[in-house]
Write a protein that binds this DNA or RNA. Structure first.
Lengths: 339, 339
DNA sequence: CTGAAAGCGCTTACAG
DNA sequence: CTGAAAGCGCTTACAG
């Protein structure tokens, strides 16, 4: 591997000059800089981040931390972040946190603390108190995508509004028996997204003068098979909603699947609306409240880079991204309703 | 940040002893080691990878390189790799290569060459000749998941067999007009997966004494909307297959969607079989040739770690993973066929 | 079993 | 505008 001394030797200058020239620092003669760049290119020389990081304390890398990423959502956040990080010459370190506290401990104390990254992007994670403390102790810029975490700026959508939008759509179609599927109460590591969407759901019902029926709210995590189980639970309760609002599109897909398996038609017998505009939602004709998750990842990464560059801590800011209702074929008026 | 000198001072030993004790090297008194470990834990000390990497040349990180990862497949490979990397104390660097040569250049020459990783896991990427050369010049263990790349060990499935399995299933059901959707001829960066599956398709037809009709083979990349377009193309050609074998599950989903949009029933009018057993395939009742992609990622990562540990280059090995046909509700006998 | 010291490949005051 | 030299935080022969 060619090192800085090789370049310096070939250029007939000191390593200090090479270092300055290649990093675009001022105080290098233009001709000198050109010559050095030329030679570095020929030699395929790139400074070793390990060596460069020792004196500066900078690593040139950013961590993206998320729960074990069996989901479209986290992949999308990552993709967005990767876009802007790569464009700015940063590397992306990927950390997945399991739900088991012991494994989380390993990542937090052993991997993350290793001064390996300049900044952290936390995706939709509810952290324990100790973890938040550890995070701040690392003294690196942190950005959260999804939930609001005390003390850290974040990018998110207004989840209460999301719930209102989705439920309002169903109400306007004429539905009154509307179920909510989402928010597992014993998911300690979940995040306050589902409760917020549920609150929006309740608000929309109230605005329409509909008395909410607690039996119509069923817990669920975020994946399709959670939706299957939730809808089965709904049936077991012997309630018959004409519409369901689910916490995510994947859950909505599961609900649709289970409903059809039980002989219900969507949307004739059951309207379903999800959240996300998942890459595959169009395949299901799913009506959904869309959010641009990739863009959230991009913005979070860009903000981190900006803070790294300027050193300025934009006081704990919350960036709220827009959402929009996309109506497809999974929702309609309830059976027998008059326009 | 506490450094090794802090630990040494507190323990009343030299930094050399701390270094040896913490890394489990022999030649440290048991009581000394225990004491040092205790203190390191109290102080939350972990060696800086930058500093440790300088003298050793090791980084403790592995790169996972894949095409811009808008796909379930790459996410799954990553997840598998992350499992075993984290368990072994390695960090995972994620690199996405675009299809544009200039952007690829940036990743290859600027990011990857930066001696930032100890080993590379390449996921389903056809590399240009220059890129393969650059890869070998890096002189780091490389492992490929997916296609066979000359000079590098890989983990893969037998794609010819995959094609035979899927097509054989359709043949046995009584289909004779079977289409193949996959393999975009002008996808220069694609990989030889689709041609292999196509070859298996042709073999299965031949075994059954069916003359292949070139009009029944339609190019397609790997995503759902590619399947939509491909099926539309098939219809435009005025051919009427009773069954379609697609290069991936996502493509199969697109084909099913477009077929239904045109009034065809699946499987009554059209049988569809895909490849992967995508996380969502069950939602579509999709018959598929299953492969365990996460496991492939795990094996690739484990092999890399093994090679890093022992320094032994297992001569260019090809690990072929099993596949299996999963029959669901997207395939049946063709209309009018007798059992 | 332990320590003193050189060295890994850079960056950054400090001189000139 | 350029260079000599110290130093970043570790690891690793080499002595003892």
């Amino acid at each position: 591997m060619t090192g800085i001394v090789d370049v310096a030797a070939r250029a007939g200058v000191s390593v200090a000059t090479v270092s300055r020239a290649l990093r675009g620092l001022p105080g290098v003669a233009d001709t000198t800089r050109k010559a050095i760049q030329q030679i570095a290119a020929e030699l395929d020389y790139v400074a070793s981040p390990s060596a460069a990081g020792l004196p500066t304390g900078r690593t040139g890398a950013v961590a993206v931390v998320s729960p074990v990423a069996r989901g479209w959502y986290f992949t999308a956040v990552c993709e967005g972040a990767q876009d802007v990080l790569t464009a700015n010459g940063y590397d992306l370190l990927r950390y997945e946190l399991s739900e088991m506290e012991t494994d989380r401990h390993r990542v937090f104390d052993t991997q993350l603390l290793r001064k390996r990254v300049d900044a952290l992007l936390i995706a939709s994670l509810r952290l324990t108190h100790d973890e938040v403390t550890a995070l701040h102790a690392m003294n690196r810029p942190v950005m959260v995508v999804g939930p609001v975490v005390p003390g850290s700026p974040c990018v998110r959508v207004d989840d209460v509004d999301v719930g209102r939008l989705a439920t309002g759509h169903l109400v306007r179609l004429g539905h009154r028996a509307i179920a909510y599927v989402g928010g597992n109460p014993d998911d300690r590591l979940g995040f306050p997204v589902s409760p917020a969407r549920h609150a929006g759901y309740l608000q929309a019902l109230e605005s329409a003068g509909i008395e909410p029926d607690p039996a119509l709210t069923v817990p669920s995590k975020f994946r399709a098979n959670d939706g299957v189980n939730a809808f089965a639970e709904l049936c077991a309760r012997n309630v018959s909603p004409t519409a369901v609002f689910t916490v995510s599109d994947e859950v909505a897909m599961g609900v649709m699947h289970e409903a059809r398996r039980r002989g219900l038609r969507v949307p004739e017998d059951l309207s379903v609306v999800g959240v996300d505009n998942h890459d595959m939602s169009w395949l299901f004709g799913l009506t959904t409240v869309a959010q641009d998750v990739r863009e959230q990842g991009r913005i979070a990464a860009a903000t981190l880079i900006e803070r790294l560059r300027t050193g300025i801590e934009h006081e704990t800011s919350v960036t709220t991204m827009p959402t929009s209702l996309i109506v497809r074929s999974s929702t309609s008026r309830p059976a027998g309703a008059r326009p």
